[in-house]
């Protein structure tokens, strides 16, 4: 869903138990050094460079001038930016619960041991994760066609008149569908793995109390995998806020519905690549990064506090 890397894990708030006092030394750097060095080169340096760029303005005519925080002022009053942010927020509020809900239900079904052919389900539902976003979107794009795609085929085969999935009213839902398809198995697997390692003694206790299946789910399973739920939610928030690949690849099929400022990330892309407005693009990206961090942090605080 994101462009550079797989979604990242949650902040390590419940940090691993501290290592022993006497080993506090620089030895650890010998191990983490290489990671930090490459990370500094490919993440930190461009970010620092972007922050620097965000203080300037360059023009086709007239060159570059220092403008202080003017770009930030402009971005905070930029309707296009806020509209894009609103769109991904809506996406986040609808698509993420649906995706995580399906993933959780499937994970619980798998874990319940009541399915025939469990490993078949586990692997087939996970498969879409292996499909590159480029291929997934091309594929769905072909299928969304109302004339010759799958939608068109259904219409002509059954005499239906399904609405155009790429019309302005539906295109966000269609993008949501692609994202859900790509990541439902991935999230299912995270939940399922968490369920698999719930200490068995808890179930035995529940059995003695005569708790039913549903009670076991709500009282034992869900609280036990709360960490996994929070992690998956945070991945999904970052993914939603950075939504880009899917609308970008789908745009040639729906140019009027998917505008060049459709999502914040798409907006920074257009600013930078169509408009050559690198400075303003960097500004919007930094603001977006800050917003993402704050939201992710709040979700984590809330998720961890609840019932703790």
């Amino acid at each position: 869903m994101t462009t550079l890397q797989p979604p990242v894990a949650a902040e390590p708030r419940p940090a691993p138990p501290p290592a022993r006092r006497d080993r506090r030394s620089w030895t650890g750097w010998g191990f983490i050094g290489p990671f930090v060095a490459v990370f500094a080169l490919v993440f930190l340096a461009p970010i620092v460079y972007s922050i620097y760029l965000s203080l300037f303005r360059d023009q086709l005519i007239g060159g570059t001038t220092f403008v202080g925080f003017d770009n930030y002022e402009q971005a905070l009053q930029d309707d296009r930016f806020w509209a894009a942010l609103g769109r991904v927020a809506l996406f986040l509020c609808i698509q993420v619960p649906i995706m995580l809900g399906i993933a959780l239900l499937v994970a619980l079904a798998l874990d319940s041991g009541r399915l025939y052919g469990k490993s078949f389900f586990r692997i087939t539902i996970f498969l879409p994760y292996a499909v590159p976003a480029v291929v997934a979107t091309l594929m769905w794009g072909f299928m969304y066609g109302t004339k010759y795609g799958l939608v068109g085929d259904f219409n002509s085969a059954f005499g239906w008149s399904l609405p155009d999935p790429l019309s302005p009213d539906l295109v966000l839902a269609s993008i949501g569908n692609i994202v859900t398809w790509e990541f439902v198995g991935y999230n299912m697997l995270i939940f399922y793995s968490a369920l698999r390692v719930i200490p068995h003694s808890l179930y035995e206790a529940a059995e003695i109390d005569g708790a039913g299946q549903w009670r076991v789910v709500t009282a034992i399973k869900l609280p036990a995998i709360r960490g996994a739920l929070v992690i998956a939610t945070i991945f999904s928030i970052i993914g939603s806020f950075q939504l880009f690949n899917e609308p970008n690849i789908l745009r040639p099929l729906a140019r009027n519905a998917i505008t060049t400022d459709y999502t914040p990330n798409f907006y920074t892309y257009s600013l930078s690549f169509s408009g050559q407005q690198h400075n303003y693009s960097a500004t919007v990206a930094i603001i977006m990064g800050l917003i993402t961090m704050v939201v992710a942090y709040l979700v984590q605080l809330r998720g961890m506090r609840k019932g703790a």
């Binding site: 620097y52 760029l53 300037f56 360059d58 023009q59 086709l60 060159g63 570059t64 220092f66």
Partner: peptide, 11 residues
């Protein structure tokens, strides 16, 4: 600023 304008080469 001059350095950036060279680096960015928007001009």
């Amino acid at each position: 600023a001059l350095v950036t304008s060279v680096a960015l080469g928007a001009t």
